[in-house]
C-alpha cells in the first residue's frame, strides 16, 4: 500500500501582523484607491489556497476567489475588529465555498455528471502515496456536512487557532470547540473505516512515535 515516507508535520505560513491587517482594513473602509489592489495582492493567495484545500484536488477556483473578494469589499463596513481582517475574509470564503459545495451536491443529485463524483484532476508535485491519501480524505469529506468540512480544513489543514475559527464561522468559541470535536469524531470514524487510509495514518503515527 502506502510507503512510510514521512510528510512534513507542520505547515509554516507567513502571517502578516495584525497591525498590517488593521491598516489595510482602515484603508479599505476609507475607500482608499490603492487598498483593494493591496488586499487582492496580499490576501488572494490565501483565499485561493483555502478554496483549493476546501474542494480538494481540481482546477483552481478563480471564479470563487473573485466572488469572495466581491463580497469582501461589499461587506467591509461590517468589520468591527480591524485586526481580525483575515478571519473576516476567511469567514466570507468559507461561506462562499459552502454555498458552492451545496450547489455542486444539487448538481450531482440531478445527475449533471454520470458518476455523481466530482471530476478528478491530477495532483502534481507530491508523492503518489500522499496523493492517494489525499484523494481518500476528500472522498470522506464529500460525505460530511459543509460545516464539518470547513472545520476540518481550517483546523487540521490551515492550522488555524480555535479563536480564529470561531471568528471566521461566526460562532462562540465554546460552540466552535464542541462542533469541532464532533466533526473530528465523525471524520476520524470514517477514516478508520477506510483500511488503506488507516494503514497510512497508522504508519504516520508510528513515525511520529519514533517506531520503525
Amino acid at each position: 500500500m502506502y510507503g512510510r515516507t514521512p510528510p512534513p508535520l507542520s505547515v509554516v505560513r507567513s502571517a502578516p501582523t495584525g497591525d498590517d491587517d488593521a491598516v489595510l482594513a482602515t484603508a479599505l473602509i476609507a475607500r482608499d484607491r490603492e487598498a483593494p489592489g493591496q488586499a487582492w495582492t496580499r490576501l488572494s493567495p490565501l483565499v485561493l489556497r483555502l478554496l483549493r484545500r476546501y474542494f480538494g484536488p481540481g482546477p483552481d477556483r478563480q471564479d470563487l476567489c473573485q466572488e469572495v473578494f466581491l463580497r469582501f469589499f461589499t461587506r467591509i463596513d461590517e468589520l468591527r475588529d480591524r485586526t481580525a481582517l483575515r478571519s473576516f475574509l476567511i469567514g466570507i470564503c468559507l461561506g462562499v465555498a459552502q454555498n458552492e459545495l451545496r450547489r455542486a451536491r444539487v448538481r450531482r443529485w440531478i445527475f449533471l455528471t454520470q458518476s455523481g463524483d466530482l471530476p478528478d484532476a491530477p495532483i502534481n508535485g507530491a508523492d503518489p502515496e500522499a496523493r492517494e491519501a489525499t484523494e481518500h480524505v476528500y472522498k470522506i469529506l464529500a460525505g460530511v456536512s459543509a460545516e464539518d468540512r470547513s472545520l476540518f480544513v481550517t483546523r487540521y489543514i490551515e492550522k488555524m487557532e480555535l479563536a480564529e475559527i470561531a471568528v471566521a464561522i461566526g460562532r462562540p468559541l465554546s460552540t466552535t470547540k464542541r462542533r469541532l470535536a464532533r466533526a473530528t469524531r465523525r471524520i476520524a470514524a470514517r477514516m478508520s473505516g477506510d483500511p488503506a487510509l488507516a494503514d497510512y495514518v497508522g504508519g504516520l503515527g508510528a513515525l511520529k512515535m519514533g517506531k520503525p
Binding site: L46, P57, F69, V137, R155, V201
Partner: peptide, 25 residues
C-alpha cells in the same frame, strides 16, 4: 492526531499558489 497528520499531508499536497497565480485585481 490522525486528523492532524492527514491535514499535514493535504497541506503538503495542496500548497499555497505561486505568487501571481491569482493575477491582477
Amino acid at each position: 492526531q490522525r486528523c492532524e497528520a492527514l491535514g499535514d499531508v493535504i497541506a503538503e499536497t495542496i500548497g499555497t499558489p505561486a505568487p501571481g497565480a491569482t493575477g491582477p485585481l
